[in-house]
Simulated assay, not measured.
Amino acid sequence: MNRPIIPSISLVLMLLFVSCQSPKKEEKKGYVSAELIDSSFVLPEVRPFAQAHASTLVHVSGKNFLVAWFGGTKEKHNDVGIWLTKGDGKTWSEPVEVAKIREVPHWNPVLFKDKNDDIILFFKVGSEIAIWETWYIKSSDEGATWSAPQELVAGDKGGRGPVRNKPIVLSDGTWVAGASNEEGVWRPFVDLSKDQGKTWEHNGYLKVDIDSLGGEGMIQPTLWESEPGHVHMLLRTSGGYIYRSDSKDFGKTWSDPYKTSLPNPNSGIDLVKLTDQNLYLLYNPDNSNWGSRAALNLGLSTDNGKTWTDLVKLENGKEGDEYSYPAIIQWDNHIAMTYTWNRSNIAFKHFKINNN
């Protein structure tokens, strides 16, 4: 008669221990890291203006970028124009003023590359935000030369097209620009173009509950498409937090904006969706209206913006410092960004995103 094989107690414990262990590689599955490639200041020590703000950038080819901003004595001064430089992330050309329609303040340039690799530079013109005009110039030679300025929507006041952040191109080819109006209550909307920017359709303001929000309202949407026709925006607000709205019909109609967990001191934000489907957001982590812009973070969401973690703390300054109005772009598994550095310079950073 065969006796049953009874394993020793030590062997049983050893097998249980091994079975409960997960391979080290599995523990790190889905881990995202940002590898710094380049970090520099865009402007030289000696420059022909006192202040620089509201930068924008575009990746033109290879290692080359264009960066634009508004520069002059101070925001709202009549000598403020739109300036531009080209560089590889390490060194930059001397800044050149590329747009000055007339002797009134210019504002909020936005660089955008279309499917033909033409570069469009949108910007605002006007002594007050409520009467902004939107103008644009185009370049077919990576910013070496530019077309004559044209008004985006002739005669329109208050701003059309992209108010501060880059447009996105949806899966059906529609261009969507995050826009807003600051006459009275700040109100966001999107401008839609079905013909590659030739004409634009203002599709109506989103609902702003100013009584519950407090302060001025909400402006400057940053956009992404999660799946065909499903478009989303995050919004700068006066309510201490970033708000969100969603569309299921290619940006034609939008949900009422709702509060997220992300703080916002009434300062500009911008994001991109990378090929890994994750979202990368630049924001100031303070939750008081007109609060601190002394810290600037790169946030990461792996669930379409439902939850966020901080991937990189880009700046953590002292009281009175300003690191604001960020812009971010993506290509392949790379992101690059610019932002205002104490109104005296424009900071540039380039990261490679690694997914393990």
Rank of each mutant, 00 (worst) to 15 (best):
I5Q: 02
I9P: 09
S10Q: 12
S10F: 08
V12K: 07
V12S: 03
L13W: 06
L13D: 13
F17A: 14
S22L: 13
E26R: 08
E27F: 12
Y31C: 09
E35S: 11
D38P: 00
S40C: 08
S40A: 12
L43I: 10
R47N: 09
A50T: 15
Q51W: 00
H53N: 07
H53F: 05
L57R: 04
V58K: 01
H59L: 10
G62Y: 03
V67G: 02
W69L: 06
G71Q: 05
G72M: 10
H77M: 13
N78G: 06
D79G: 06
V80S: 03
V80D: 01
V80P: 00
T85K: 07
W92T: 13
S93M: 06
E94I: 15
V98N: 05
V98P: 02
A99L: 13
A99K: 05
P105G: 10
H106C: 12
W107E: 03
W107F: 13
W107N: 03
P109W: 06
V110W: 00
L111Q: 07
D114C: 11
K115E: 14
D117N: 15
D118M: 13
F123R: 01
V125Q: 07
E128R: 08
I129Y: 00
W132V: 00
W132F: 13
T134S: 14
W135M: 12
W135I: 05
S139W: 07
S139P: 03
G143V: 13
W146E: 11
E151T: 12
E151G: 08
P162R: 11
V163K: 01
V169F: 00
L170G: 10
G173A: 10
S180L: 04
E183W: 02
D191Q: 09
D191T: 06
S193D: 04
K194W: 01
G197L: 11
K198L: 11
W200R: 07
N203I: 15
Y205P: 01
K207Y: 13
K207I: 10
I210Y: 01
D211M: 12
L213M: 15
G215K: 09
E216C: 05
G217K: 02
G217D: 06
M218T: 11
T222R: 08
L223D: 06
W224A: 14
E225Q: 10
E227C: 05
R236S: 04
T237E: 03
R244I: 14
R244T: 15
S245P: 04
D249Q: 09
F250W: 11
F250Y: 15
T253E: 06
T253H: 08
T253V: 06
D256W: 00
D256I: 14
Y258P: 00
P265H: 08
I269H: 01
T275V: 15
D276S: 15
D276T: 15
D276N: 15
D276A: 09
Y283W: 03
N284Y: 06
P285T: 15
P285D: 09
D286F: 11
A295I: 11
L300F: 01
L300T: 14
S301D: 10
D303W: 10
T309F: 00
V312P: 01
V312C: 05
V312M: 04
E315Y: 03
N316V: 08
G320D: 01
Y323G: 03
W331N: 07
W331A: 09
I335W: 04
T338I: 05
T338W: 00
K349E: 02
K349L: 03
N354S: 08
